[in-house]
């Protein structure tokens, strides 16, 4: 498949969706049903690969591009993922000019408090999947305490959790 077409189709899917996997129905319609360049299984593999690694769920688009057109397709997919992100800057400039308005400032602070609720809500399904035993709950609690009450770097907490997790499998084997 022509990488330019890959880019345009994936950009279209990204531009009319507002979160990571919301673009999936459009990608499915274009790549599986209309152009027949991907099978259902390949699309599932792309989604699973995108979700298995770190970073945003929407990165699966890069895998779709790769499966449709090789490395040039992956580059096209990557460009389609990052292009819409820059649309935020004109919006930011527009609102920044009005930032001294008391009503706007109060509205922004209200969004901040709403964001606290949204992040708490987002942690619920994550916790449901991850907190499967006392050991995982202990990791979450220690992570909460370290990040809330110390200045330790987030990266160290993540790396320590990964090492402890792998260690729990390694130790019984040795």
């Amino acid at each position: 498949m022509n990488p330019l077409l890959v880019y345009l189709l994936l950009l279209k899917a990204n531009l009319i969706s507002f979160s990571g996997l919301a673009s999936l129905p459009i990608v499915h319609a274009d790549f599986v049903q209309t152009y027949h360049v991907l099978t259902e299984r390949q699309l599932n593999t792309a989604v699973a690969a995108g979700r298995s690694g770190p970073g945003p769920a929407g990165i699966y688009i890069v895998s779709v591009g790769y499966l449709a057109a090789g490395v040039p397709g992956a580059v096209a997919g990557y460009l389609a993922v990052i292009t819409p992100a820059f649309l935020v800057i004109p919006l930011l400039r527009l609102l920044h000019e009005k930032a001294s308005n008391p009503r706007l400032r109060s509205a922004i602070r209200a969004i901040l408090l709403s964001a606290a609720g949204l992040l708490l809500s987002a942690s619920i399904p994550l916790g449901r999947d991850a907190l499967t035993g006392w050991f995982a709950v202990a990791i979450a609690a220690v992570s909460f305490a370290l990040l809330s009450f110390t200045k330790v770097e987030t990266l160290w907490v993540i790396l320590a959790a990964a090492a402890i997790g792998a260690g729990t499998v390694w130790m019984p084997m040795h």
Partner: peptide
Amino acid sequence: AAILAVLAAVTGMMVSSS
């Protein structure tokens, strides 16, 4: 096992940030 442990830490991180 590493990913599961990281997800547990991330859960704590999200509550902390909230």
